[in-house]
């Protein structure tokens, strides 16, 4: 009667317990379902352009401020110059993308729920 005996007993008990578990779902097959692929594609088609857009929009501000300083010093509205207005517009750019994403993602949620339903998962 050693610890090893006890350990083996536990292991066999564990194996027996595992045998009664339902079979694991075939995840590759589920992930390949057209509904899921459509969801991924829809998300990608929205998120990737958004990311590219905000990255370009943000870094073009830094680029202009850093390397075209004289140009962005031009006053265009009252006492406000291009540099300040462009910086301020970044806030609205971020808010608009966040707003659009929230609207769009309620559709993603529906798509995801429909897919899970079809794949046989109960919510």
């Amino acid at each position: 009667m050693s610890l090893r005996y006890f350990d083996n007993l536990l292991k066999s008990l564990y194996t027996v317990a595992r045998m009664n578990e339902p079979a694991k779902p075939d995840w590759e097959k589920i992930a390949a379902m057209p509904e899921f692929q459509a969801l991924l594609k829809a998300k990608r088609r929205f998120v990737v352009p958004c990311c590219i857009f905000f990255t370009i929009y943000y870094f073009s501000l830094l680029y202009l401020v850093g390397w075209h300083t004289e140009m962005v010093k031009k006053v265009v509205l009252g006492h406000l110059n291009i540099a300040y207005l462009f910086a301020l517009s970044q806030f609205f750019m971020a808010w608009i993308i966040a707003f659009l994403y929230t609207k769009k993602s309620s559709k993603f949620d529906q798509q995801a729920a429909a897919f899970l339903d079809h794949a046989g998962f109960k919510k």
Binding site: V47, C50, C51, F54, Y58, L61, A87, Q90, F91, M93, A94, I97, A98, Y101
Partner: peptide
């Protein structure tokens, strides 16, 4: 500016 725009990465990704 940078500290707000950063949240788009959090939100989208």
């Amino acid at each position: 500016v940078g500290w707000l725009v950063a949240y788009l990465t959090v939100l989208l990704i």
